Simulated scan of single mutants.
Amino acid sequence: MRLLGICNIGLGTQSGKQLSTENITGNRYLGEDRSMILINCFFSVGGAAINLLSNKPSDSHVAKYQVIHAVRPNTAASDSSYNCVTRLEDSQGLLGITTTKDLIQEAIKTIEANLTTLGHLVLPTSEKIQFIANYIARHFLGAKVKPYVPNFMKAIDHVITHVGGKHVLDEVEKNLKLSKTDMEASRMTLYRFGNTASSSVWYGLAYAKAKGRIKKGGRVWQISFGSGFKCNSLIMKATRPVDREEKNPWSGDHNDEFPVDLKSTEGGIPYEFKPSKKI
């Protein structure tokens, strides 16, 4: 299966393309229950239009990526998982999104299921052996050692994660033992565009393309998660070098300003979001 290419980021789409978008207007909460204003605070409007996948051999010469693996565990069969993020009416009959205390636990459980399946598919034998040896030592021999976290970057060249928020990216970086460079595309996406949910992984991929980092044979891992609870992983291999495109959202006068030093901008406002002069 091959991905023909990524067109420019935007809300519009054309025939023959697929749209991945986040539009908060339909779920905006207008009530007074503070536990249901999550979506008003954490999400931004955005979208990505992507050329359709094709399994025709005749399209191989124009394809930019080849889809290697797609892993999508969904734990909605569990009541606690299904209800951890849900849309409900408040006491006034207004719809809003609410979360439960089980959210983090269910998210971890679903993401672990995703990584377990993905690891079996992509990790080199050396990493699999270390993981199995660690598991046996902890569960059968009673050894007091920390769980072994496989090094996915031995099988992946670029990781683009769902930008659910700064704390989400911090946890992904910590738990998968990723470097600052590995997380750069996702952090810059959050800084410039906010949390655009499912489409954020395409903004992140566009960043890597704009920087000229996608080389022929390079493997890209996109990982996203959300209500359900579900966690998606997509592994793609570049069939040719993917150069900077004119309609890439990162192209233009400001592209060379990235990455920015987030420590020096802590609490600041990105230049794209200048306050109104009327304030």
Rank of each mutant, 00 (worst) to 15 (best):
H120V: 12
L121S: 12
L123I: 09
S126K: 14
S126L: 13
E127N: 11
E127D: 10
K128M: 13
I129E: 15
I129S: 14
Q130L: 12
A133C: 12
R138A: 08
H139A: 11
F140S: 11
F140D: 10
L141M: 14
L141Q: 11
K144L: 11
V145I: 15
P147K: 07
V149H: 05
N151E: 14
D157M: 09
H158K: 13
H162F: 00
V163Q: 04
K166I: 12
E171T: 11
E171Q: 08
V172G: 00
E173G: 12
L176R: 07
L176I: 04
L178C: 07
K180E: 15
T181M: 13
D182S: 06
M183Y: 01
E184F: 03
E184D: 10
S186R: 01
M188I: 02
Y191W: 13
Y191C: 04
R192Y: 04
G194L: 01
G194M: 04
T196P: 00
A197W: 02
S198W: 01
W202Q: 09
W202Y: 15
K211I: 08
R213V: 08
R213I: 08
I214Q: 02
I214K: 05
R219K: 15
V220Y: 03
F225Q: 00
S227A: 13
G228C: 06
G228V: 03
F229P: 00
S233C: 05
D243R: 10
E245D: 13
W250H: 04
G252Y: 05
D253S: 14
H254G: 05
